[in-house]
Design a protein around this nucleic acid. Structure first.
Lengths: 335, 335
DNA sequence: CTGAAAGCGCTTACAG
DNA sequence: CTGAAAGCGCTTACAG
């Protein structure tokens, strides 16, 4: 049997209260007993039972992470930042793939509640009323990543999508493109603001918006392919495309390749996120970078602060984006 | 305050034992009291505290998952299979990024032990003696994915790397390539058997092995680039390359692109894994598929069976690989 | 069919 | 500086 606190107390000739105090770096024991107890602990290979500890302390040192899709390169990079920072702070993470399903999300929320996670990180999904209700019922702090809610006042960590999209589009325009298509997301969360930024940039630069050139995907690779195929008949009406995610941008490049079109010779493309696939693409993808790792880190630090201060309010953070120039955008200026 | 089992017992006029029985679908209560209790539970919005439950039942319904790198496309796809299957079986997963570090791995193993996970999934890492010792000490079942150990008898789920590599290499040979370079992994786990399969295929087909054409990476994108650059001066001495991972294959394609070399015109390449990046590559990558999702699923099912049967022994599974033909290999036959 | 009680392995007042 | 005791929220013999 694995040793418990009782075993070490007995062997060290002290009460379990004393062992507990030593374990938790509290006051109330002599240096001598501390040494003795520590020695017994090592001797026995004793490890405190976090479950028992959690039951009384009401802290499990674990955080629930909800994502719509673990497989996306967006999630991969985010997860890395979250994991790193959680581990640094002695927290573990339970990761949940919601698959964008409402019932799955709710289901997970309840499970996470039963498992008494100390806090929640919720990424890239709209906060439905029912989610908000059950989160509130759970009574634990939440931080949103790459999403926010006007209705529900939850703190978030994100980039200003509208502004970032504005810059991405402007970048294309500054490179001499005046007919720009868009592969947009189909949601209100990030799809819409990114599209608005795109439209605004076109307008501000005195170009005319062509709604035909706007196409809607779901941020994934396949949808990027599909969108580009939709755009194909209109090939002569644009010279560049702005994709609302790297995965979609790479999908577009892939569909172009299938149709013997080359990027950036036949058209330029700029992505969004700066995930690993952006580097991996042929040609390497010019994109607007979201600092995914830092965002994960910031989110974890915020929840932990909320947990430890027992204050479920936190400020939100707008992180900086940045345009990473690689080889998928051709300048039309010098030609 | 959140309702406890006591609250529902009181309100339903029964003992907590009865509530517990109903909660756990045991025998020993009338249909009438069951209904009443269930109603109270709903009324109060009662959810059992999994921590308290875990303390007495010794089951937490959570599994620890250790991976060297969550960001890799290999891990992404695997994680998806693991998550899906865990959730189907009402288990949660704590994911741990070991970063290939021994101390981190050990650290995590201990934390997972303290948190009383019911089982462990350990992927893509060598089992060092100290790992094995602490795993044994924890007394919970483990399943290995894409790794195994001759010294320590732990059940695993993997593909036969040697055989798969043999087939990948043979595939190139059958397509008319007789000078084949390799971008190998630098470890004994999967790197070595894949290289052996490669060598064997070359030998069996009566070709001559050229050690100069073997180069060593660490399975990641960057190392694939680096390896291809090493191979560049030898460009005329091979027509195809076998890369031990898709990430490295894509890295190689990327480095080729930088050097104005085209795949598959200037050389052919076959990868290993069939992760999402293989589909995303330009050209789409021909590769030997590991059924990553199924492997994750099989692993979870095995641990759960071990957990529930309280028998820490399980059979290992060799999963089937498959060559997925896409566009990165050119046939030299018809030319 | 049902309840009282012990106990899981800890932490935390309380008392000395 | 230290210990006895209560209690966290459950499950599980045991007894009826």
């Amino acid at each position: 049997m694995k040793p418990t606190i009782k075993d070490v107390a007995q062997k060290a000739n002290v009460s379990i209260a004393t062992v507990s105090r030593i374990l938790n770096n509290q006051l109330g024991y002599s240096e001598k007993t501390k040494e003795r107890v520590l020695e017994v602990i090592k001797e026995l290979g004793f490890r405190p039972n976090a479950i028992a500890r959690g039951l009384v302390s009401k802290r499990t040192k674990t955080i629930g992470v909800l994502l719509p899709n673990v497989t996306s390169s967006f999630a991969s990079k985010l997860l890395k930042g979250i994991e790193e920072s959680a581990h640094e702070n002695d927290y573990s993470m339970i990761v949940c793939n919601t698959d964008h399903s409402g019932s799955r999300t709710l289901d997970y929320l309840n499970i996470l509640g039963e498992k008494k996670v100390d806090g929640l990180v919720f990424s890239s999904q709209e906060i439905k009323e029912e989610y908000y209700e059950t989160i509130t019922r759970l009574g634990i702090p939440v931080i949103l990543i790459s999403t926010m809610s006007y209705r529900f006042p939850l703190p978030y960590v994100k980039v200003d999508d509208r502004q970032a999209a504005y810059h991405a589009t402007s970048y294309l325009i500054e490179n001499g493109h005046d007919k720009i298509a868009m592969i947009s997301g189909n949601d209100d969360l990030t799809g819409k603001p990114r599209m608005e930024g795109y439209k605004q940039a076109i307008e501000d630069h005195g170009l005319t918006l062509d709604e035909k050139l706007i196409t809607y995907g779901d941020f994934d690779f396949e949808s990027g392919k599909k969108c580009l195929k939709q755009l194909l008949p209109l090939k002569d009406e644009f010279t560049a495309v702005f994709a609302a995610s790297d995965d979609m941008a790479v999908g577009a490049i892939s569909a172009a390749y299938e149709n013997n079109l080359k990027v950036p010779d036949d058209f330029s493309i700029i992505g969004f996120d700066n995930t690993l696939v952006a580097e991996m693409a042929i040609p390497p993808l010019t994109t607007v970078a979201q600092p995914l790792r830092e965002m994960g880190k910031a989110a974890i630090e915020k929840v932990i602060e909320m947990i430890e201060k027992e204050d479920h309010h936190a400020s939100s953070s707008i992180m900086n984006f940045q345009i990473i120039e690689r080889n998928s955008v051709k300048s039309l200026k010098s030609t």
